[in-house]
Amino acid sequence: MKTGRKLKKIEKLNLVPILDSVFIFIFFLLMSAQFVDVYEIGSSLPMTQEIEDKKEEKDPLMLTLEVSKDQVVVKTGLKVTRSRSFASTENEQLTNYLRELKQQNPKENTMIVKADPKISFQYLITFIDSSQGDRKNKEKLFEQIVFDNSGVGK
């Protein structure tokens, strides 16, 4: 038995406007594309500031990272200086130690970097990376980096 229904022709979607906009979008992206991902590591020179002479009970952290060819020395404290050394391969241990320091001093965010003039720039950047924690998970340790150009051990 035949039904009385007629087969309706399905109308095709007009994709021309969307194609136009996609083309324009692709041109815009191509023009502004940078195929090397570049980022920045901020730092500043040591600044001096006059502050009122306050009697602080707590010893300031005064975190200093001394980077030399074969080791990194982390120094803390102003009144009582403590230091801990890490071999150049112990990046993870360094990060964990700085994490501990951050937990003990959550308000501190400054780190002084002293480096041996003979080390390479990449070597220094590797240790700065280690001192910044897990950046992928937005972890923040001591993000304010101040370069002390007086040299290691001075």
Partner: peptide
């Protein structure tokens, strides 16, 4: 360029 895991965009 030196390689790093920094994620701050350049200004």
């Amino acid at each position: 360029l030196a390689e790093s895991n920094a994620q701050e965009l350049t200004k």
